[in-house]
């Protein structure tokens, strides 16, 4: 602004710069709580803790929907035929190549556990529908097979896998990845 000539311009400039810098740091620090408050609060985080699911009541061929962290989780008790269908696919021909073994836990191939949210734009696909025996998304026609892999339609990726672990043959814990199963 004013160009009043001064004998010590550097000292004056330093003061102005220091004041401006300290002020800017404070303004930035003020943003932290104002932005952090929009993150999930402590009760939401606590409610997102792992959940245990009893698999015993799920009949062969049945798909049940449970919720973890407000997301639908599909638990699919696959028949022998459905497992074979999933395995007998040329993985490299798939839009998102993944083998059936990569999508299940060893020793528990009959169980497919996926997050039931279409990878296109977030709708919930319908079970046992579509050409591939898996899921069909009513929003934009994406089709998933019996391993939850995208086969047809606009969705770019396979249905995501939640972290989960087998506590026993008939019990899983969703939300906690198994360390190495024994």
């Amino acid at each position: 602004m004013t160009t009043v000539s001064s004998a010590e311009p550097t000292r004056r400039d330093f003061l102005y710069i220091a004041t401006g810098a300290v002020g800017a740091i404070g303004a930035a620090a003020t943003l932290v709580p104002l932005l952090a408050q929009m993150n999930p609060d402590a009760s939401t985080v606590a409610a997102g803790a792992p959940v245990d699911i009893d698999l015993a009541p799920i009949a062969e061929g049945q798909i049940v929907k449970v919720f973890w962290r407000s997301k639908p989780i599909f638990i699919f008790h696959r028949t022998k035929k459905e497992i074979d269908e999933a395995k007998n696919v040329d993985v490299n021909s798939l839009p998102d190549p993944e083998s059936d073994a990569e999508r299940t836990k060893p020793g528990h191939e009959q169980w497919l556990v996926v997050i039931g949210i279409c990878t296109h734009l977030g709708c919930i696909p319908l079970a046992h529908q579509g050409e591939y025996g898996g899921w069909f998304c009513p929003c934009h026609g994406s089709q998933y097979d019996t391993a939850g892999r995208i086969r047809k339609g606009p969705a770019p990726r396979n249905l995501a896998l939640p972290p989960y672990t087998f506590l026993s043959d008939t019990k899983i814990r969703i939300g906690e990845e198994s360390a190495k199963t024994a």
């Binding site: 932290v32 709580p33 104002l34 952090a36 408050q37 993150n39 609060d41 402590a42 009760s43 939401t44």
Partner: peptide
């Protein structure tokens, strides 16, 4: 009270 307890920096705001 949930603002005071659970919301991030809710007590401060």
């Amino acid at each position: 009270e949930s603002i005071m307890r659970d919301v991030n920096y809710g007590w401060l705001i």
